[in-house]
Design a protein around this nucleic acid. Structure first.
Lengths: 217, 217
DNA sequence: TAAGTAACGTACTAGTTCGTACATTACGCG
DNA sequence: CGCGTAATGTACGAACTAGTACGTTACTTA
C-alpha cells in the first residue's frame, strides 16, 4: 500500500488517470477560451496534452461534455476564491472598496474564465443551465455584500433601498468589461485597459464609483 | 432612364444587387451574433436569404470578409446613432443622465451588435484591427462627454481630473453587461436584467452611478 | 432591338473534424 | 507473481463545410 500512496506523486508513473484528466481540462480551458466552443478543436486539445484524443472521449465523453466540465471547473475556482473574501471586519466603506478591489484583481488575473463566460453567453447559457452543478452553486459574494450594506445603513453612511445583487452586478460589469472587451476597446480608443501602468487607477476607480453611489444623498 | 429609377423601387424586380447584398448582410448579422464566427454556417446564411451561397462569395468574397462586412455595418449604425446625441443644451448633470439613458436604450435595443463585439473580443479584435474602416471611425461620444465634463467643472458641480474615456468606459461596461451577460447572470442569480419591469430601475441606475461619481467630493 | 454584362443558380470537390473500432499495455490485487 | 481491468495508442470513417467551376438569365444601353 505504499504503492497506492506513491501513485499520486510518482513522477515516473506512465499511467495516471488524475493527471491525464486534469491536463486535458487545463489545455481545453485555454482552447475553448481562445477559440470559442465551435472554434475549438478536439484534435488540437489532444495534441497539446501528453495524451491522445482517445482519452478525451474516454474521460469526458465528447466535445460538449468536455466544454461543460471546463465551465464547471472554472466556476468552482471562482467560487472558491469568493469563499476567501474576508472583509467583514472592516468598516462598510472600506469593506466595499476592498471587495471591489479583490474582484478586480480576481477578474484581471483570470481572463480565461471571463472569456468562457462570454462564450457561454453567446450560446445563451444553455450548457450552464443544463448543469445542476452550476445552477446549484450559490454565490457567496451576494451575502457578503448584503451584510456590508446593512451595516452601512445602520451606521448611516449608506443610502436605503440598495439591492445587493445590483451592487454585485455593477462591480461585475466593470471588472468583466476590462477583460472581456479589452481588445475592441483598445483598438477603438487606443487605450489598453489592462496596462500595468493604469492598473491602480482602474482598480481604485470601481471602489470610488460604488462608494460614491452608496453614500450619495 | 425611368427604368433605372424604377429599378431600385420596383418590387417586381428579380435581380437587385442592393437588395440581395443587404439581405445577406442582415441575415449574416444574426447568424454570426447567434453562433459566433466559427459556429456560423455559410450554407445556413444562404438558406435564410432569397438567394444562394454563390451570391455570398460573389458579393463578399468569403466567410471572413462577410464577417468583417457585418462588423463594419454594425459599427456604422452605432456611430450614426451617436451622431444624434443631442445633450449639449442640458445642464451637465442632466446631460450625463440623458447620455447614460440613451446609451442604455441603444445597447438594449441592439443585442446583436453587443454580441458581435463579444465575439470579436474572443478573437482578440483581429478583424477590427485589420479594417481601416473600423479603426478610423472616431467615436463622437468621447467629445460629447469631454464637453459635458468641462462645463460641469466650470459650474463647480463636477470633480476635477475625470477622463472622458473613463466615463465612456464605465457607461459602456454597465450597458454592455446587461446584454452580453444576461444569460449567465440570469441563470446564476435568477434575475433577468432585461425584464421590462426592471428596465426603468436599471436605466436610471447607470445615470445615478455616474453622476454620484462625478459630483462626489 | 440586339448585344453585352451584371446578377444569379446548380452541382460538385477538397479538406477538415468529431467520433470510434480495434489493439495494446501498465498497474493493482489476490 | 500472474491475472483482470483500467488506461492508453493507432488508424480509420462518416459527415460536414467552405469554396468553386460551369452554365444561365435578366437587365441595361447603344
Amino acid at each position: 500500500m505504499p504503492a497506492s500512496r506513491a501513485t499520486a506523486a510518482d513522477p515516473e508513473r506512465r499511467r495516471d488517470a488524475d493527471r491525464t484528466r486534469s491536463e486535458i481540462l487545463e489545455v481545453a480551458t485555454r482552447e475553448f477560451a481562445d477559440r470559442g466552443y465551435a472554434g475549438a478543436r478536439v484534435d488540437e486539445i489532444a495534441a497539446r496534452t501528453r495524451t491522445t484524443k482517445r482519452m478525451i472521449y474516454y474521460y469526458f465523453g465528447g466535445k460538449e461534455q468536455l466544454y461543460v466540465a471546463v465551465l464547471e471547473h472554472a466556476y468552482a475556482q471562482v467560487r472558491a476564491a469568493e469563499q476567501e473574501l474576508d472583509v467583514e471586519h472592516l468598516d462598510p466603506v472600506s469593506a466595499v472598496r476592498r471587495l471591489a478591489g479583490l474582484t478586480y484583481d480576481h477578474h484581471t488575473a483570470h481572463p480565461d474564465f471571463i472569456k468562457l463566460v462570454s462564450i457561454e453567453n453567446i450560446h445563451q447559457a444553455e450548457h450552464l443551465a443544463k448543469s445542476e452543478v452550476l445552477t446549484n452553486l450559490k454565490n457567496p459574494a451576494i451575502d457578503v455584500i448584503g451584510r456590508i450594506l446593512q451595516r452601512g445603513r445602520e451606521d448611516g453612511v449608506f443610502r436605503d433601498g440598495i439591492d445587493a445583487v445590483d451592487v454585485h452586478m455593477v462591480i461585475s460589469a466593470y471588472c468583466v468589461f476590462q477583460v472581456a472587451n479589452q481588445h475592441t476597446f483598445g483598438a477603438l480608443f487606443g487605450r489598453d485597459l489592462l496596462d500595468p501602468g493604469l492598473r491602480e487607477h482602474y482598480r481604485t476607480m470601481i471602489g470610488d464609483l460604488v462608494v460614491s453611489y452608496l453614500t450619495s444623498t
